[in-house]
Design a protein around this nucleic acid. Structure first.
Lengths: 341, 341
DNA sequence: ACCGCTTGCTAATGCGTATTAACGCCGTAA
DNA sequence: TTACGGCGTTAATACGCATTAGCAAGCGGT
């Protein structure tokens, strides 16, 4: 019952028991080496003092000695807890947290990263990434220059989502968009579609490029016609698609799919009877629709989980593949049907 | 370009620059005492080395020496990122993150706290709360023993949600349930209700007790009849309420309200024509209902924000009220109408 | 009596930072 | 010439813990 304000330290316990601080540390850590041992009665005396005072080792000092703080940083260009609902990032974080809990690490959210030109920056006046043992990077698009610098500086990190090389291979856990997209196109081909379209950027973020690549590959493989249309305005896009005689549309962004479906309705086109729609992934923006879209699901939670797993392996120096692609789960849905045009 | 795995230290910078570790520390902390000063050119040399290496002070060491590292801890008894949707805690975290970003602190999520007896514990073998400068505690119910210990040990923390004294006043930012509840009851009274009920625990968590207290106060004030029924099964509860001739029900839990509305429907009772329903706060569990409930909204985001504000004040030693109650915003809704019984 | 071995413990050190006291230098006043 | 004070920097230390090397005592064997 020390009324003093100061925390009880091993030194205090040592003095109370008439032993050295080292002894207290040894007893605490239950070390049973041949090299260092403590007589049972001494051990008991120390333990009693510990119990009496309610002593707990200071985690800060412990980690100083450890050379590891067991913090995993989480960096996102947007706020980690977005204000908007229908949150795309949430599942990743669920996986990240679950795995972090499992391996006994705390998560450090870099909320203090200053916002420049409308988004956070990794590198800035005082880059706090180093505060953690390693970091998870989250975002549809990561600045290649910043990635390159991370690699050059040898900072342990893992990206959620595949990334192109940036002056070296980038450790990542991504979704296998090409394979998943190819599967969707094949399904459409089997249903008789011969003129299909990819609607979206198809470039910029790796996840977009990967989808388009899968689309293009499958189109060539099947020997059918595939057009690529950037999304601008629903009416314009739909005009173009109709001109090309497209019967199935593959949308990069779920939300764009919802908008196109609406436009189709306006033109008295039934989905999927007159026009098929396939959503290449989950909504990244809120989208309102009653349709049960055909497409695939990004294994977000699993990606988060495995990203932490890979990071952990990197930190432990355990070998292992540092680039992983996870399969997307197909969703049957109700917007893809037999071609009819 | 140090390819070594070790993190860069002040000592490294010092060696690179040909100065002492002390000098580096001084430059870093921008100390401008009369007692200790550094020539501008030396300072510049050091700063360049720091920039080149991307050095950041080890937060652990800093905290050991300095007692501060600009981390704010966030402790929750449940996972911070819950798997379920319709997440009750999310808005609190949005506010917490926003304010943390504002004051330039990073957030440390204590995901590593081990689960004992089905929930996380603050105190255990190595309590990591101290790793942060201060902590935000989140949860419907916080163990009073753990709170008492936090207070006794003088750990800086703030609870989101009002808490009873635990061996001393608990710093908190809570919602003013009593006032908000009184207002709802008064509204019902004005509409002619004379026999009303409170459905819920009304005890245990402070937030429950506060609601019931408001209810009781208002009932007494109005000189009407108020009964308290614990929620068990919808049918049972409804039976009891009908026996008492209740015309307006105040539910502690939104979800229970939804269930009761359903039960009412089963008995051909129209809401609100035959029976009024008031929800005392937002859903804490997912609830499916088409009803636009009358009641009030808990200022969750604002509570999170202000909790960080209070914590920051505590850490700075700035005075100020450490117990705040925020008003709840009334929601007109469509489930409270003129009494009819 | 000496060596060698075991047992039980401690002194010393390092981890990375912040702080304090002090040191050497230079110029100026006494 | 000496004393002195401002300037720029550093050596030393503390923080609380873990770890390593090593010390002292006891004991059996030659």
């Amino acid at each position: 019952m020390p009324s003093s304000n100061r925390r009880v330290t091993q030194q205090d316990i040592a003095r109370m028991t008439g032993v050295s601080q080292t002894t207290v540390s040894i007893v605490l850590n239950e070390r049973d080496d041949a090299a260092v041992r403590i007589a049972p009665e001494t051990r008991e005396r120390v333990l009693q003092a510990i119990r009496k005072t309610g002593y707990v080792a200071d985690p800060i000092a412990r980690r100083l000695a450890d050379q590891r703080n067991r913090f995993l940083g989480v960096f996102t260009y947007e706020p980690v807890f977005p204000a908007g609902l229908g949150d795309f990032y949430h599942p990743f974080l669920v996986g990240i947290e679950e795995c972090a809990e499992r391996i006994g690490c705390d998560l450090l959210l870099f909320t203090s990263a200053p916002v420049v030109d409308g988004r956070r920056r990794i590198f800035h006046q005082d880059n706090r990434l180093r505060l953690a043992d390693g970091c998870i990077l989250l975002g549809r698009w990561l600045d290649p220059d910043e990635l390159a610098r991370l690699i050059a500086e040898g900072q342990p990190f893992v990206s959620v989502g595949r990334r192109d090389d940036a002056g070296g291979p980038v450790p990542y856990v991504g979704a296998d968009y090409p394979t998943a997209t190819v599967a969707q196109v094949r399904k459409a081909v089997e249903l008789g579609h011969r003129r299909i379209a990819y609607v979206g950027e198809g470039a910029g973020a790796e996840s977009h490029a990967d989808r388009l690549r899968g689309f293009t590959t499958a189109v060539r493989e099947a020997g059918i016609t595939g057009v690529h249309v950037r999304f601008t305005e629903a009416a314009d896009v739909m005009d173009q698609l109709r001109e090309h005689g497209v019967t199935a549309i593959f949308v990069e962004e779920f939300a764009d799919g919802a908008v196109l479906a609406e436009e189709a309705g306006r033109r008295a086109l039934r989905v999927p009877d007159d026009l098929s729609l396939v959503a290449l992934g989950d909504p990244t923006r809120p989208a309102s629709t009653d349709l049960d879209f055909t497409g695939y699901r990004i294994p977000r939670r699993e990606m988060g989980w495995q990203a932490v797993e890979v990071l952990s392996a990197i930190l432990d120096g355990t070998g292992g593949e540092t680039q992983r692609l996870l399969p997307c789960e197909p969703v049957a849905g109700a917007t893809l049907a037999v071609a009819n045009a």
